[in-house]
Design a protein around this nucleic acid. Structure first.
Lengths: 359, 359
DNA sequence: CTGAAAGCGCTTACAG
DNA sequence: CTGAAAGCGCTTACAG
């Protein structure tokens, strides 16, 4: 009867604490000996093999031994035999570069776990070298597949070695159509939804403060704005589209121009710009939503939910992107075509919108 | 001469694409045969063993074969032999619950990677069951050690199974002193630094809007405020400490009370409160920093760096917490005593503070 | 300078 | 109902 071993942490880094490094861990064989059976039998009861016919009495003897010895199966050995691991790799070009990006990890982790997989992550900070190392590492660990993600929605080259694995692109996609499976947010639908929040309340003169920097989101969100207007029978007026840096300063700075437009509502490229715009509007004695209605994009909680008044916006579905990526990898999401699957951006209504003053 | 295998992704999930699952991957033996040497030799050249004396000619033949076949070592087999993996596990009670918490992952990932380890993460969402499963999984993968982290600084119970591994607590600690290694932020120092930003500019009448909800941070940050005052020879006035909900609404709501205090500066429990306070102050026609100086805590970038004016604050060192946790685990950070190691909260000065009006 | 052999901890047919 | 044996892909003494 061996006393419960409380330990592990092998001492390959000498000079650390007093851990007894490798105190010959309990193995299957130990359990077998303790229970007086063969290792095959132990393996059978542990894995609850259906067609294995083991006497209940034996089964119990084995279970008791396992508990006694505090046995832990060695996943490495298991995987060696089976040829695969229960790992899914996630390589990201920035782990927590933006608060939203972290949600990709979160979604992937939850979904992976739900399906019995563990998440192996690596952040490359945009370095091609680190990226190659990360992918190599994952390949060596025989991951089930790899999620290759970017922190902002964009086209991307597929690293050569990535092709050695089963993979899906998350929040990015290959410029060559059909080159790889991918999940991305539906920017156009998001832009349309954002605009519709305003339309529904009766706004007609709606400005759009877009990002001045090129980005897929910029084109998509503008397209959505146009689509919504068109569907509502409102002619698109290019003059109603302003451009500014996609942050608070940009939103604030756009105030003056905006006020020349005589609008009753604004849709901002993102929540940060909306936050800056709030300041600008207030300085001009305008109140939100009564004088002017505002909607944002991203649903960056810390900001959107706590502005005064709270901001109506459209959510960037990063959590869902991560989760969908895993499902796609595992083939759980009905056969996705070999072109990027678009995930919907849900509408989040808060208090920054009411009917226009005139209406 | 085998053609370069582009593939992997074994088909244990049928119905997925057309991957050829398990196309008998290239092994050491294949390389050995191709190079006309023994597997031992191949192993030796791959691992660049110092004392292995291999003919240069042989070495090259092996390297060529490796390239030819596109050989990838099987990490599982490697680890089986060595007994350890190059994994470090990170269990978190919320992966991206808060933007800051994600930085723990980031720091841990970078530092782990730097030392040749990969990060295995699991988020438990506070469920003890999920947590136990996550730890068991990590134990089975023979991780080098486990980082057990919480998204806000607090005392925590140590899960029984965690003790089977080498571990360190990150952003939390055991109530029983000496029970475990831990890294936490130095809240008191942070509070002191925050207050000192104000003191240095000559402020004397400094209010502190603390969180109304119990938390370690609340006590520590208050203590720091007192310490700074005392060091500056300013008597502590309990009346200068207000309490409110630790978010924008709380900060905003505290404005009225604050203005009764006749202060020239405020130190807020966190940046979110400061953001709310900005609104409140403005509504009262007060300007920052001229009429009143403001400092926050956390350095939540999206907010602090983009408020109008940008907010001086103190940074919660989450990235460093994650990195220090890994170093501590690996014994790289000079023998830490068996009591929580405190990581400094750096001062971040921006434009929300100038000298007081009277001074 | 290099090869044959044992072994890491499991699982899986195959006997019995 | 259960055990003996081979094998997963590597590494490590040990010979030579």
């Amino acid at each position: 009867m061996i006393s419960q071993e409380k330990n592990s942490g092998n001492a390959d880094t000498p000079g650390v604490s007093v851990r007894t490094g490798r105190a010959h861990p309990v193995t299957l064989r130990d359990v077998a000996e303790a229970a007086g059976v063969s290792t095959a039998t132990v393996s059978l009861v542990i894995n609850k093999k259906k067609n294995a016919r083991i006497a209940d009495e034996t089964r119990e003897r084995v279970s008791a031994a396992i508990r006694q010895l505090g046995y832990r199966p060695n996943a490495m050995a298991k995987n060696l035999v089976s040829g695969t691991s229960r790992f899914i790799g996630l390589v990201a070009d920035g782990v927590a570069t933006t608060p939203l990006a972290g949600q990709i990890i979160h979604g992937a982790q939850d979904e992976a776990w739900k399906n019995g997989y563990a998440l192996l992550i690596a952040s490359t900070e945009g370095s091609r070298d680190l990226e190659a190392d990360a992918i190599a590492m994952m390949l060596e660990y025989k991951v089930r597949g790899i999620l290759y993600s970017t922190w902002f929605h964009r086209p991307t080259d597929i690293p050569e070695t990535l092709r050695e694995a089963d993979f899906v692109l998350v929040n990015c996609f290959s410029p060559e159509p059909g080159a790889a499976r991918a999940v991305v947010p539906d920017e156009a639908q998001g832009g349309r939804s954002a605009t519709e929040i305003l339309l529904r309340r009766g706004h007609v003169r709606i400005a759009f403060i877009n990002a001045a920097t090129p980005a897929l989101a910029r084109d998509g969100r503008l397209q959505g704005y146009k689509d919504a207007l068109e569907a509502a029978g409102i002619p698109f007026d290019p003059d109603m589209v302003l451009e500014a840096a996609p942050d608070q300063e940009g939103g604030y700075g756009a105030t003056k121009e905006l006020l020349r437009r005589n609008v009753t509502a604004v849709y901002c490229y993102n929540d940060r710009m909306a936050m800056g715009l709030y300041d600008g509007l207030r300085e001009n004695g305008l109140s939100i939503p009564d004088d002017i209605a505002v909607v944002g994009f991203d649903n960056q909680e810390v900001i959107a939910a706590h502005l005064r008044p709270p901001l109506s916006t459209v959510s960037l579905p990063h959590y869902e992107l991560g989760a969908a990526g895993v499902r796609m990898l595992l083939g759980l999401d009905g056969a996705p075509i070999e072109s990027a699957v678009k995930v919907m951006c849900p509408t989040i209504e808060r208090a920054s919108v009411t009917a226009p003053p005139a209406a």
